[in-house]
Amino acid sequence: MPMATAPQAPPSWPLVRLDSARKYFPIRGGLFGHSARYVRAVNNVSMTIERGETFGLVGESGSGKTTLARLIPGLLRPSGGRVLYDGRDIARTHGGELNRLRRRMGIVFQDPASSLNPRSPVRASIRRPLDLQGVRGREAERRVLETIDRVNLGREVLDRYPHQLSGGQQQRASIARAIILNPELVILDEPTSALDVSIQAQILNLLQSLQEQIRLTYLFITHNLSIVRYMSDRIGVMYLGKLVEVAPAEALHDRPFHPYTAALLSASPPLNPRLRDRKRYRLEGDPPSLISPPPGCGLHPRCPFAVEVCSERTPPLVEAAARRLVACHRWEELTLKVGPGA
């Protein structure tokens, strides 16, 4: 049975690898539904997620982070480039083989209220992955109970319907469904942004202890920089469908290399009123359209450091330091600093 147990000696390739992955959505228009225009939601992204790490993906709305997350389990097919899971090209995997790969991943969505089938009792939703695997009867029930214990959900919720649960309980149930098959990777798409602060803390703690207990790899998507820092080993920053910076979490917060990262960090309220007058990197205007992104670097019309070359050539994502990548023409000249003492 293709159970998702990690191999004894982990292979040398990363668990997830994106090679110039692209996802363009055609815009229907014209009399015959032809389309020459596309929304470039994910535009040439290359990255890896290593086994056992938490890779945080941050970006604002329209940055393409959610689309990227859907490329990995094959919920969306890439328009170009490659998406590899454990060395296998998702776009070339079909039917049963794709399903076997998908069972090694779990996914948790933002809105807990609509993540569970409203017409099914919670038990049925959590148990469904086992049904699909042919695990039935006592064994299935045993694993359901084991899993809800893991996510600290009381047994009394199993016979209720999703609308009878609180937001925190709904999200625990979604997490239980995502981990019941012992996946390697769990994709967390803004898992706490619909929750209150005190519930958010419970869920974040739960996710961290699950990772320690059952050695999960996380792709954690959020727009909240303090949460991504608390959760992640490495962070990728997306802007306008492109990855503009990748760095270890602490390094990114201490010294961002990309002006967009600096702007994002300095715009996030720091939970300390004494830092109100901190140095801020402000961006001009609003994000441009994904249909006709500006030439060169996508940020140049808004970037305070833009020079001529920025509007002419797209900066490649280059290795700037150990474990650090940045896509900016001027990163070497800039010294960006955010936070206390800046």
Binding site: V197, S198, Q200, M231, L271
Partner: peptide
């Protein structure tokens, strides 16, 4: 106090968040 401590301020592995037991 508990609300303030439930907010993430630090990096990974630098301690757990405080949670408020029970519910509203």
């Amino acid at each position: 106090r508990m609300l303030m401590r439930a907010l993430p301020r630090l990096g990974k592995g630098q301690g757990r968040l405080e949670t408020i037991p029970g519910s509203v």
